[in-house]
Nucleic acid binder design. Structure first.
Length: 312
DNA sequence: TTCGAACGATTGCGCGCATT
DNA sequence: AATGCGCGCAATCGTTCGAA
């Protein structure tokens, strides 16, 4: 967010969207956390998917695959009080004496179920029962339902219930339709076709590359006026020094534009003049890459957080 | 005790070659 | 032409020492 000038005409809208989206990402992270408690040998969760059903691409927050069923998990991280109105396919959210209306998540997962069925047909996989869950990631969110039957009610769960709910659902199905080989094949197909569905923030917020402030940001003063000395970044504004201020820039790039970055991309984004320096910093920060020479792309490593080692 | 000069060790950069 | 990377050189850092 700090890479967009406050003078930008869309700043206020952007800021609101950014806050909403941050909440969404946090929700998925929480659900990811509880999904890890599932034994992967039995339940095989796939997270953050973009799939193709032969007609169009669609998104799924998480998909649990096992021999008996496919389980779609839709994560919601709304704050406040949620009221599900299944009859009119609406979701109300009351917060701060204000009511917002969102699309019905049940309808959303029904469509996903349809699309997933088509996806299986498209790739010639044997039909498998598809079940879906709506996970409320925020533990402080109150949940209310209007005229909802027990069956649907059971499909709304808290993130903490996830491992138990998955086991319960698993017990509802008896026939093992998919072999281990089919599951493996399906996972390979999904991974092959998978594209991270969180669109580039630039596209999502209708920003252009020129709207993004380039350079390396000084950790203490926030100015994008750091220049690279022999082995450290030096802030022209506040004279502080940092060994790894470029790591934040790298994370910004991955968040704004994409996980993959080339040396020239990094040179432009961090305003590094030397090809060799940019290459060195990038290869140190991203041990993972694919492709060779001119087509090499480095994959972001989110663990490479700046150590905030700045001094004056 | 503090400051600055000098010096050696370290480390990062530019050059240029190899590869695609 | 674009890029990765090895090698040699030089910039920079940390330490020591002497002068004030």
């Amino acid at each position: 967010m700090n890479r967009v000038s406050t003078d930008n005409p869309h700043w206020t809208t952007l800021h609101e969207q950014f806050l909403k989206m941050s909440a969404g990402l946090a929700g998925e992270t929480t659900a990811d956390h509880y999904l890890r408690y599932l034994p992967s040998s039995e339940f095989q969760p796939l997270i953050d998917l973009q799939l193709y059903d032969g007609i169009q691409h669609f998104q799924v927050d998480a998909l649990v695959v096992n021999p008996k069923l496919l389980l779609i998990i839709e994560v919601k991280n709304y704050k406040g009080e949620l009221i599900f109105d299944l009859e009119h396919h609406q979701l109300f959210r009351k917060i701060d004496s204000k009511t917002d209306i969102f699309p019905d998540p049940f309808l959303q997962v029904e469509i996903q179920t349809l699309q997933l069925t088509r996806c299986l047909q498209h790739y010639n996989f044997p039909p498998l029962p598809i079940y879906s869950l709506i996970v409320i990631a925020n533990p402080n969110t109150a949940i209310q339902t209007l005229d909802m039957d027990q069956q649907n009610l059971k499909r709304i769960i808290r993130a903490k219930q996830l491992p138990f709910a998955v086991r319960e659902i698993d017990k509802m199905f008896i026939d093992e339709v998919w072999s281990a080989g089919t599951i493996q094949h399906f996972q390979q197909q999904v991974r092959k076709k998978h594209r991270p569905y969180r669109k580039s923030i630039l596209i999502q917020f209708q920003l252009e590359e020129k709207d993004i402030i380039k350079g390396v940001q000084c950790p203490p003063c926030g100015q994008f006026r750091m220049s690279l000395k022999r082995d450290h970044w030096y802030c022209v504004k506040c004279s502080c020094r940092s060994k790894d201020a470029h790591l934040q820039s790298l994370m910004d790039y991955q968040l704004l534009i994409g996980k993959e970055i080339t040396t020239p991309d990094f040179m432009k984004f961090a305003r590094i003049e030397s090809r060799k320096v940019a290459w060195r910093l990038l290869s140190e920060a991203c041990p993972e890459y694919y492709g060779e020479t001119r087509s090499r792309k480095y994959i972001g490593n989110n663990q490479s957080q700046p150590a905030s080692s700045s001094t004056n």
